[in-house]
Lab assay of single mutants.
Amino acid sequence: MAAAAAAGAGPEMVRGQVFDVGPRYTNLSYIGEGAYGMVCSAYDNVNKVRVAIKKISPFEHQTYCQRTLREIKILLRFRHENIIGINDIIRAPTIEQMKDVYIVQDLMETDLYKLLKTQHLSNDHICYFLYQILRGLKYIHSANVLHRDLKPSNLLLNTTCDLKICDFGLARVADPDHDHTGFLTEYVATRWYRAPEIMLNSKGYTKSIDIWSVGCILAEMLSNRPIFPGKHYLDQLNHILGILGSPSQEDLNCIINLKARNYLLSLPHKNKVPWNRLFPNADSKALDLLDKMLTFNPHKRIEVEQALAHPYLEQYYDPSDEPIAEAPFKFDMELDDLPKEKLKELIFEETARFQPGYRS
């Protein structure tokens, strides 16, 4: 834990890192770190609560700039109880001085990944967590956004079992017609939660990839272990087919990539493993919904509104309290091709509203 900075004593240090967030945020305490930044909790002297502050230093890398800009653009436009918001952003007053960006968010005690390492969940908890994931996802999908990296560590939890989806750095506007060349190379989302079509096709992607990830998360809540822990690309596919069985001819016809289709045709026939054999203690309604989410063919996979209306979630289902976005989200430009200098300018502009004396 960093010592509390005395008023006016300059930035606090946390594990050798400068955290320049005073005077409003003090009493910093280390939480963890990701690929390009550290997260601390801090005391907000204005709202009198502890908050989470993520320090991001992305400006050396085009990919990190892209992810940072995506996350900020999306989260500043989203407003939903099951999606983490941005409360404040701290950065230098000029673009030349801006080396880091500090993002202030609600402090959540833990995440689903940490929880599943230590606790076996009751059916009631599984049901409530799944409902909140789908409630947040309904809003995301209504904005025409794909999260693309749903996994237990991106689901934040607090002691009252509130759940918030975080990390929109890989999110995209849904565009089933656009052929994202190089899709697989830039697709760094965790393999275990990846839909089979991501490994088999490169053309376009749809909201059904997020539903697949939610199915993987439900299976993990039922058993405290990942359902498809593939060691590499082909191993991942083999794990999936080992449980779902061989795809039907109709399902194979959806695979545009001939090499991928021929690979699947070359494999020995596998039978589907019954879900109640894998999860003998699970609620039968939970397994019915799991089956509809972990469907090989993305066109037959359940959609988020149908999933919310499934009998497993009937005690929570309330369409009048499951809000959607006001308007579909649009990125003005494809960020993939922009140089990091341009992305830095866009991050600077996007964060201006939090600067003292800002006038829109």
Score class of each variant (00 low, 15 high):
Trp275His: 04
Ala4Phe: 00
Leu252Glu: 08
Thr185Leu: 02
Gln17Leu: 13
Leu157Trp: 08
Asp235Phe: 04
Pro176Gln: 14
Lys300Gln: 09
Leu313His: 05
Met98Tyr: 06
Leu184Ile: 05
Asp179Ser: 05
Leu134Asp: 08
Pro229Ala: 06
Gly182Met: 11
Arg50His: 10
Val18Lys: 08
Lys55Met: 08
Asp210Trp: 04
Ile240Ala: 05
Ala52Tyr: 03
Asp291Ile: 01
Val39Pro: 10
Ile95Thr: 01
Ser122Arg: 13
His147Met: 02
Tyr25Ala: 02
Gly245Glu: 03
Pro323Leu: 12
Arg191His: 09
Ser248Pro: 12
Ile126Ser: 11
Met38Gly: 13
Ile324Glu: 04
Val145His: 03
Ala174Trp: 08
Arg79Pro: 01
Asn158Leu: 10
His125Met: 01
Phe19Asp: 03
Tyr36His: 15
Pro58Leu: 15
Arg225Tyr: 02
Asn253Ser: 07
Thr68Gly: 07
Ile198Arg: 11
Gly136Thr: 02
Lys164Thr: 07
Asn276Tyr: 13
Arg70Asn: 01
Leu155Ser: 06
Gly230Tyr: 02
Lys54Met: 13
Gly357Arg: 11
Tyr64Val: 15
Asn257Lys: 14
Leu115Ser: 02
Thr94Gln: 08
Lys151Ile: 06
Asp88Trp: 07
Gly182Gln: 02
Asp177His: 10
Ser57Phe: 15
Arg194Leu: 10
Arg79Ala: 02
Pro319Ile: 01
Thr181Gly: 06
Arg148Asn: 11
Gly215Ser: 04
His299Tyr: 14
His299Thr: 11
Arg191Thr: 06
Ala325Thr: 12
Pro176Arg: 10
Ser57His: 07
Ala42Phe: 12
Glu341Lys: 12
Lys300Tyr: 11
Val104Ala: 00
Leu252Lys: 08
Asp177Ala: 14
Leu200Asn: 09
Val188His: 02
Ile89Tyr: 07
Lys54Ile: 08
Thr295Leu: 10
Lys48Glu: 13
Ala9Leu: 05
Arg91Asn: 04
Tyr102Phe: 14
Thr159Ala: 09
Leu150Gly: 05
Val104Glu: 04
Gln17Cys: 06
His80Ala: 05
Phe348Gly: 08
Ala307Thr: 11
Ser266Gly: 15
Gly34Cys: 03
Ile56Asp: 14
Lys151Pro: 02
Lys285Leu: 10
Glu341Phe: 05
Pro339Thr: 13
Gly245Asp: 12
Leu107Ser: 01
Glu322Ile: 01
Thr63Gln: 11
Ile31Pro: 10
Asn281Leu: 09
Ser41Trp: 11
Leu241Gly: 10
Asp100Ile: 08
His299Gln: 12
Ile72Arg: 02
His120Ala: 14
Leu121Pro: 05
Thr26Leu: 04
His80Asp: 02
Val304Pro: 10
Lys138Asp: 05
Glu303Ser: 07
Gly34Val: 14
Tyr139Lys: 12
Leu112Gly: 05
Asn45Gln: 14
His120Pro: 13
Ala309His: 01
Gly215Trp: 02
His232Arg: 01
Thr94Cys: 06
Glu322Gly: 00
Met108Arg: 04
Val18Thr: 01
Ile165Asp: 04
Val173Lys: 03
Ile256Val: 07
Glu314Gln: 08
Leu264Ser: 00
Asn47Lys: 15
Asp291Lys: 07
Ala4Ile: 06
Arg148Pro: 08
Arg353Gln: 11
Arg79Asn: 12
Gln249Thr: 10
Cys40Asn: 10
Lys203Val: 13
Ile103Glu: 09
Ser41Tyr: 15
Asn257Glu: 09
Leu28Asn: 05
Gly182Leu: 12
Ser360Leu: 13
His178Glu: 10
Pro274Asn: 03
Lys99His: 06
Asp149Gln: 03
Phe168Glu: 10
Asn158Ala: 08
Asn45Thr: 13
Gln306Ile: 03
Arg353His: 09
Asp88Met: 01
Pro323Thr: 12
Lys300Val: 11
Ala189Gln: 09
Ala6Gly: 11
Leu69Gln: 14
Leu112Glu: 02
Tyr358Val: 12
Lys151Ser: 05
Asp106Tyr: 14
Ser208Val: 10
Pro311Gln: 07
Ala174Arg: 03
His141Pro: 12
Asn201Asp: 03
Ala5Met: 11
Glu96Asn: 06
Thr94Lys: 11
Tyr131Phe: 14
Pro58Ser: 15
Arg191Trp: 06
Ala307Gly: 06
Asp336Pro: 07
Ser41Leu: 12
Leu278His: 08
Gly10Arg: 13
Gly169Gln: 05
Glu71Asp: 11
Glu322His: 00
Leu237Gly: 10
